Amino acid sequence: MTTSTRATAKVPAVLVLEDGRTFSGRAYGAVGETFGEAVFSTGMSGYQETLTDPSYHRQVVVMTSPHVGNTGVNDDDPESGRIWVSGYVVRDPARVSSNWRATRTLDEELERQGVVGISGIDTRALTRHLRERGAMRVGIFSGDAVADGATLLAKVQAQPQMKGANLAAEVATKEAYVVPAIGEKKFTVAAVDLGIKGMTPHRMAERGIEVHVLPATATAEDIYAVNPDGVFFSNGPGDPATADGPVAVMRAVLERGTPLFGICFGNQIL
C-alpha cells in the first residue's frame, strides 16, 4: 500500500521494538507495515549507498544524522539494483532535494520501491536504546496498519530472529560475471559474492585488477578455474554461523596458500 509523497507526511506511524518500547511519528516512503532487525547507521551522507547495500537485507536502518534526503536520489550511486533495507527510520526528512545529479526525492524512491519508513522520531534516543540493549526485532506501522499497541508488539515478537538466518544466497549474484581491469591488467581476483557492493569490484578494477565475481555457492573448483592471484570474500547479510559452504571454501583457499582478503561478512567467516 502506498500514498502520494505529500500526503504521506501527514499519515501517522509508529515504530515498535520487541522489548515493547515505541516511538510515534509520521509515515515516510511507502505506507503499510514492515519488520526486520533494528540497526543504526551513523553516516552523515551516503544514504543511497546504505539503502542499496545488500548487507542490510531484512534490517530496519535507523539514521542517526538528523537530516536525511538533502541530495535526493540519482541513478549513479546505488550499490546494487534495488533497495535492500526492509524499513527506514529518519528524524527530519529534507523538504526539498538540492543536487544537480538528483532525479527524484528520497521519499519518492522509497515509495516507488515499497519501502515502509517512519520520520519525526528521536533517532538518537532510539540509537542509544539499541546501543545499550543490542540489536532487536522491530516493526514499523503506518496508515491502516496502526492499531492496538499490544497487537503490534505481538506481530513484532512473532518475526524470525536474525540469529540462524542464512541470507547470502538471497542477495548474491546467480551467475558469475567479470569486471575488467581499467587500464593495464596487473592481477586477477576471484570475489565470492555474499552480498557484494557494486563499488567494491569497481575500485579493484581501478587498480588494475580483473575481478571475477562468483555466486555465494561457488566451490573451490569454481574459484581456481579463473586462476586467481587472490581470493576475496565480500560483505553480506545474515548470521555468519550459517555459512558452512563459504567456510569450507575459505579453508580450501587457505590450505592452498592463495592470498585471501575480505570485508565485513567475509572477515567474520575468516
Rank of each mutant, 00 (worst) to 15 (best):
D122W: 00
V115D: 14
G114V: 09
S4G: 05
G114Q: 13
V68P: 00
A176Q: 03
T188W: 13
V231P: 02
D122R: 05
R137D: 01
G29M: 06
S24W: 00
S55V: 03
F233L: 15
P78D: 13
M199R: 15
A248C: 05
D19M: 02
K185I: 03
G139N: 07
P246F: 07
F233S: 02
E79W: 11
G43Q: 11
M162G: 12
G139K: 03
I118E: 05
M44W: 09
A243T: 04
A135S: 13
E170P: 04
G139M: 07
E255N: 14
T64C: 04
G46C: 07
L167S: 03
P246I: 09
A38S: 09
A241F: 02
Q161W: 12
L106K: 14
S98N: 13
A176R: 11
Q59H: 09
R256W: 11
N74G: 10
W100P: 09
V115R: 07
M44L: 07
G29Y: 05
A252R: 10
T3Q: 13
R137Q: 12
R21T: 12
R124H: 08
S80D: 15
D222K: 03
K185L: 01
S119D: 02
M204R: 06
Y177K: 09
A7M: 13
Q113N: 11
T188M: 08
F40E: 00
L214P: 02
P246D: 04
D229G: 09
A125I: 00
V192N: 00
A225D: 15
H67L: 11
V213D: 03
E170T: 14
L214W: 03
F187G: 00
V39I: 14
L126E: 01
A13Q: 07
T34D: 04
L152R: 06
G120V: 07
E206Q: 14
E206W: 00
L260F: 08
T3P: 03
H67A: 09
N227W: 05
A176L: 02
I182M: 14
E108G: 12
S98L: 14
S98Y: 12
V116I: 11
A102I: 00
H67S: 11
H57A: 10
K197M: 15
G143A: 10
V90K: 01
P228M: 04
R104Y: 08
L17M: 15
T5S: 14
T3V: 12
G143D: 12
R91N: 10
